[in-house]
């Protein structure tokens, strides 16, 4: 059964310098974070073309959590469980809910934040939530003569179809989450991205308002196989609106959302589209409720 199967060489760098050196010596090796996504693929083992592996598990720089007055900086190898242990006071609510929805404790102990953002053909809810929260991501280029890094917003990590825009030797090293909080935030999720990717939909929405007038409104839908959707036209339309939204206004925005999804040129099932519209309506009704309670 295992004839001709090659045992890949495992490289375990202990520092970022070691990692740069390993990347230059083994350019075809794959980076290994938690391994939950790679190993859950049906063709993972046995396979004849296994690349060498660079395990990122023993690089302290990638496991660091740093907190300043303005933001929280998380290394890409921090596990989802470790991130949740930071506590509700520090993490924004929608991010806490997203992380808890990512899988059971056993999976969360193993999955890392960097790995969850870099899954090849499956977009997880965390991408959308981080995009809505305007988090920044540090990308390190590992094949440059000198280590070269840049910060980008999470939305820029994916193209319009939801595909990862990282080059082969680029890697996420840190994620920076600001402490600015919006007045309203919600995370809604349906379906399991691993079992039913064609049915799963996640919505993260945040909103700020001043004297019942919306000043900031952002939302993002993540569909595991249908990518990553931010609809700036609808966001712009919602800004400046007086709360509460009228039922007609909600229906109009939901209809616009449906049309925008149709025009987005990605494969979205009918169920996902319907769920997305209903989630959006639920979120707007919740926003109405909160604004009315606060009056």
């Amino acid at each position: 059964m295992y004839e001709g199967i090659r045992s890949p060489a495992i490289h375990v760098p202990k520092s970022m310098t070691d990692l740069l050196s390993a990347t230059s010596r083994f350019p075809n090796a794959i980076y290994w974070a938690g391994g939950t996504y790679i190993m859950s693929r049906h063709d993972y083992y046995p396979t004849k073309d296994s690349n060498d592996i660079i395990s990122l598990n023993e690089i302290p720089d990638l496991k660091r959590i740093n907190r300043t007055d303005r933001y929280l900086e998380i290394g890409s190898m921090v596990t989802i469980s470790q991130l949740l242990q930071i506590g509700k006071q520090v993490l924004p609510d929608p991010l806490t809910q997203t992380l808890q929805a990512l899988g059971t404790r056993i999976i969360r102990n193993q999955a890392t934040i960097g790995g969850s953002l870099c899954t090849g053909d499956l977009r997880l809810a965390i991408s959308g939530t981080l995009a809505v929260l305007r988090t920044e991501i540090e990308i390190k280029k590992l094949d440059a003569p000198r280590s070269d890094s840049r910060w980008i917003t999470t939305g820029k990590l994916y193209d319009r179809s939801g595909a990862l825009t990282l080059d082969k030797h680029e890697m996420i090293t840190r994620v920076r989450i600001g402490f600015d909080r919006e007045d309203f935030s919600i995370f809604l999720s349906a379906g399991n991205p691993m079992y039913n990717p064609q049915e799963s939909v996640n919505l993260a929405l945040v909103c700020s308002y001043n004297q019942s007038v919306i000043t900031n409104f952002r939302f993002c839908f993540t569909m595991p196989t249908g990518g990553f959707h931010q609809f700036q036209d609808i966001e712009v339309l919602a800004r400046g609106t007086m709360l509460p939204f009228s039922p007609n206004h909600i229906a109009r925005l939901a209809k616009m959302l449906g049309e925008a999804i149709d025009n987005s040129h990605v494969t979205v099932s009918l169920l996902q589209k319907e769920r997305a519209k209903r989630f959006f309506e639920v979120a707007l009704h919740q926003l109405n409720t909160q604004s009315l309670i606060e009056r």
Binding site: G35, T36, I106, Q110
Partner: peptide, 18 residues
Amino acid sequence: VVLLNDTAVLSCLIPAFR
């Protein structure tokens, strides 16, 4: 499920090198 270093894991998601 097995316990790896006293933590529950799915053994199909743990590679030999770990």
